[in-house]
Amino acid sequence: MTTVAAPMPSTLSIGLSRAAYELKVFFREKDQVVFTFAFPIVFLVLLGSIFAGTMEGVSVSQLYTAGLIGAGVLSVSMQNLGITIAIEREQGMLKRLSGTPMPRTAYFLGKILSVLVIGVVEVALLLAVGVTMYDLRLPSDAAGWLTFAWVFVLGLTAGCLLGIALSSLARSDKSASAVITLPFIVLQFVSGVYIPFNQLPDWLATVGYVFPLSWMCQGFRSVFLGEAGAVLERSGGYELDRVALVLGLWIIGGLVLCLTTFRWKSRREG
């Protein structure tokens, strides 16, 4: 009697299982959970308390809330994902996984889906703080929430792909945090998260506009600040068509970088 082998699970089902595993690992590390979720909230409370008042008729606290939502999304995608993958590579985990029957696509799918869940929680916490402490106005119509959704998805996807690509820069698991965190901190200052574009030198604002974080924050400001906040933008408007275009281009560019730079082995293994 011939035994018929059971069919292999689909890449999607393996990716979902991998995402569940990644989330379990993440939430078991209490220090990482607290730091990931508390860091932008602490910054929001500090900045909202120090820089109270209004700017061109817009509450400064609300301005910071919108910006820190963008920074929070990039933090859980580019920064956290890049550091995690770099550490897994240097510890040999990626090499072992590449030798298993698991499709390589399922590994990345699991990573991105887990980041999606963590990103949703991060944003929900920031919105809760913004609404309860700083009278942040949530969108009142479906169009506002739709804008929020596509900015979130495009920004998170671009951040994940950049994180995967940046993970190859670290020469060791010990240097991963410094190598990836430094660019993230610089991006926040030149992307209008902490300092509005109309207060940055022109050349520095231009540098910020090259990267996805500034466009992500601009999209979120359009959702939560409305027309009153448009005057604070460098162009005097939110330019949502350009937001979508630039984030889309970064997704394409990030994918190309991943395909050309990603390594399953550490540098010392060749």
Rank of each mutant, 00 (worst) to 15 (best):
E233T: 14
E233M: 15
N198C: 00
R96H: 13
T181V: 08
A165C: 07
L125H: 09
M102A: 03
G99L: 01
V207N: 04
A178V: 13
C217I: 14
T105N: 09
S177V: 13
Q218P: 00
M93P: 03
G159N: 05
G144A: 10
Y194G: 02
E227Y: 11
W145T: 08
L116K: 04
D135Q: 10
P196F: 02
G110P: 13
K95C: 06
F148I: 08
R104L: 12
V153L: 14
L213Y: 00
F108V: 15
L146M: 14
L232H: 13
G119H: 05
V223C: 09
A205V: 03
A228W: 09
F152A: 08
L204I: 14
R96P: 00
R171P: 07
T132W: 13
A165Q: 13
G99V: 03
A228D: 12
K95H: 11
P101T: 08
W215P: 00
W215I: 07
F152D: 00
P139I: 07
P101F: 03
G226C: 01
P139V: 08
V121W: 12
F220G: 04
F224Y: 09
W203K: 04
V210Y: 09
G155N: 11
A228P: 11
G99E: 11
W215H: 02
W215K: 03
V123R: 12
F197A: 12
V115S: 15
N198M: 08
P183D: 01
L166E: 04
I164R: 00
A149M: 07
L136C: 01
C160M: 11
A143L: 12
L169C: 10
V123H: 03
W215M: 07
R104P: 06
A228G: 06
M93Y: 14
L94F: 14
P183S: 09
G192K: 06
L146R: 10
V186M: 13
R137I: 09
S191A: 05
Q199K: 08
S172I: 08
L146C: 09
Q199D: 01
P212K: 04
G163T: 10
L154W: 05
F197G: 03
T157L: 15
S191N: 00
C160S: 12
L136F: 13
G192C: 04
D141W: 10
L126E: 06
I164D: 05
G119I: 10
A170K: 03
M93W: 13
V186W: 12
G192I: 04
L156V: 09
A142M: 10
Y194A: 01
